[in-house]
Design a protein around this nucleic acid. Structure first.
Length: 401
DNA sequence: AGGTATTCACATGAAACTATTCTCTGAGTTAGG
DNA sequence: TAACTCAGAGAATAGTTTCATGTGAATACCTGT
C-alpha cells in the first residue's frame, strides 16, 4: 500500500515530458494544416455553395493513409459548421467512418448512424431496413436544409455489400422535396471507383481530389509544429524529428504514423525517467507499435481464429513453409484436445486468407503441379513474438473454456 | 523428344443454415372501476 | 375496460456449412520420328 502511494506520489512530482499530449493523438485537428492549403481551399470552394443553401457537387477524395484527407475534411467542416451556426444557415454535416466494425459497416448501421447524428436513436436490430430508410428520409426532409455527408473509408463499405446502397444514396436527392444531400467520399484505395457501377461512379465523383503523400521534409515540419506545443522545450533531442520523418517517409509518407511514433517514443522516454526523447526511444517505439499492433489484432480475433493461429505457430519450428492441409490437420487435433468444435476446411481456408490480409502470416497460393494447389504459408514473426502469442492464445482459450 | 491429357489438393463462389439479439404485434391476463 | 405480460413472427448480423465449380503445373500417357 505504502509502496503504491509512494509510486504515485513520485509519478506526480515528476515533471512530464509532455506539455500537451493531445496534440499527438491521431484525431487531433490542429488549427493550421501544413502543406494542404491548396487542397483545402479547393475543397472549400466546392463545398461553399452549401452555405447559400445550394447543393454542392458530390466530392470524392483519394489518398493513401496519413496524407491528411480526413483531417482536412474535418477541418473544413468544423469551420463551416461554425459559420452556419453563427448565421443560422440550415447546414448539417455528418461524418461517418465506414470502417468501424459494428458501428457503420453495413447498410443498416450506416443509416442508423446517420439518424443518430440527427439526434434520434434507432435500435441495433429488429427493424427492417426500409423502415430505417423511411425514418432517415423523413428526418432529412423535415425541413429545408443542406446535409453534407462524409463517408470515410467508403471502400470498406462497398467491399462488404456492393455498391447498391451508394446508388440509393446518390438518388436520394431526387426524392427529397426540401432538403438536399451532398456526399463526400473518402477512400485510400486509389482504384476504388473503377469497379463501381458507372452510374454511381459518375454521380459520386462529380469532383475528385487526390491527396499526395508527404515527403520527408514536409513530415518534419508537421512534426515540429506539433512538437513545439506537445513537448516541453528542449525535451526532444536533435535528430529525433528527422529520423522519425525518415521512418514515415519510407512508408509512403504516412504522417499519422510519424506522429504516433513520436508520441510513443515520448511515452517510453517518460516511463524510463529519461529527461529527453532520444533516438533510441524511437527505435523502441517502432518496435512497440509493431508488436502492440500484432498483439492487438490477434487478441481481438474470435477464438476459432486463435485456434488456427495456434496450430500455425506449433508448425513453425519444424520446417519453413507449410500447406493448408497440414495446418488443418493440426488444427483439428488442437480443437479436439481443447474441446472445441472443429470447423470445415473450407472455413479454415477463409481464415487463413484473412490472416494473410491482416499481415500476421504470409500466404501465397502455389501449385504443386501433380500434387495439387494450395496456400504456402509462412510466419514472419520473430521468435519472441511467436512465444508471446502462443502464451496469449493459451490463456485466452482457457479463460473462455 | 514433344505434345496432350490427367490429376491432385486445394481455392473460390454462392447459397443456405444457425444462433443471437432485438422489435413489433396481438392474444390472453390482470387489476381496478 | 385499460394496462400489462408474454409468446411468436420477423429482421439484421456473424459465423458456418453444403454444394459446386475452378485451377496451375508436375506427371502420365501417347505419338510419330
Amino acid at each position: 500500500m505504502k509502496k503504491m502511494k509512494k509510486f504515485f506520489e513520485h509519478f506526480l512530482e515528476r515533471e512530464s515530458l509532455f506539455t500537451n499530449k493531445a496534440l499527438l493523438l491521431s484525431h487531433y485537428v490542429p488549427s493550421e494544416i501544413l502543406y494542404r492549403e491548396e487542397l483545402i481551399s479547393e475543397i472549400a470552394n466546392i463545398l461553399a455553395p452549401s452555405l447559400r443553401v445550394e447543393r454542392p457537387s458530390n466530392l470524392f477524395v483519394y489518398g493513401k493513409t496519413g496524407t491528411g484527407k480526413t483531417l482536412s475534411i474535418k477541418y473544413i467542416l468544423q469551420s463551416m459548421d461554425q459559420i452556419a451556426k453563427e448565421r443560422e444557415i440550415p447546414l448539417k454535416s455528418i461524418y461517418v467512418n465506414c470502417k468501424l466494425k459494428r458501428v457503420a459497416d453495413t447498410e443498416y448501421r450506416l443509416i442508423a448512424q446517420i439518424i443518430k447524428a440527427f439526434g434520434r436513436e434507432v435500435p441495433a436490430t429488429g427493424l427492417p431496413t426500409d423502415e430505417v430508410y423511411n425514418i432517415f428520409y423523413s428526418l432529412l426532409d423535415s425541413k429545408k436544409q443542406i446535409v453534407l455527408l462524409v463517408l470515410d473509408e467508403i471502400d470498406q463499405l462497398t467491399k462488404k455489400m456492393g455498391d447498391e446502397m451508394l446508388y440509393n444514396l446518390t438518388r436520394i436527392n431526387a426524392e427529397l422535396k426540401q432538403s438536399q444531400i451532398c456526399l463526400i467520399g473518402i477512400s485510400n484505395n486509389l482504384v476504388f471507383a473503377e469497379n463501381l457501377d458507372p452510374r454511381v461512379q459518375s454521380s459520386l465523383s462529380e469532383e475528385e481530389l487526390i491527396f499526395p503523400p508527404y515527403n520527408a521534409l514536409q513530415i518534419q515540419d508537421i512534426l515540429r509544429q506539433r512538437c513545439e506545443q506537445a513537448f516541453a522545450p528542449g525535451v526532444v533531442e536533435p535528430g529525433v524529428v528527422e529520423k522519425c520523418a525518415a521512418y514515415a517517409a519510407r512508408e509512403h509518407g504516412d504522417a499519422r504514423r510519424a506522429i504516433d511514433l513520436l508520441r510513443v517514443a515520448g511515452e517510453l522516454a517518460e516511463r524510463e525517467n529519461s529527461k529527453t526523447v532520444a533516438l533510441n526511444h524511437l527505435d523502441k517505439a517502432e518496435e512497440k507499435i509493431e508488436s502492440d499492433k500484432i498483439v492487438n489484432t490477434v487478441t481481438s480475433q474470435p477464438k476459432q481464429f486463435q485456434l488456427v493461429l495456434y496450430a500455425i505457430l506449433q508448425l513453425t519450428p519444424n520446417k519453413r513453409p507449410f500447406f493448408t492441409g497440414e495446418i488443418y490437420e493440426l488444427y483439428s487435433q488442437v480443437c479436439k484436445k481443447a474441446q472445441f468444435n472443429v470447423l470445415t476446411q473450407r472455413r479454415i481456408s477463409d481464415i487463413l486468407a484473412e490472416f494473410d490480409m491482416l499481415g500476421i502470416i504470409n500466404a501465397k497460393i502455389i501449385s504443386k503441379g501433380r500434387y495439387g494447389r494450395t496456400r504456402e504459408v509462412s510466419v514472419s514473426l520473430d521468435e519472441m513474438m511467436k512465444i508471446k502469442l502462443q502464451e496469449l492464445i493459451e490463456k485466452s482459450l482457457k479463460m473462455n473454456n
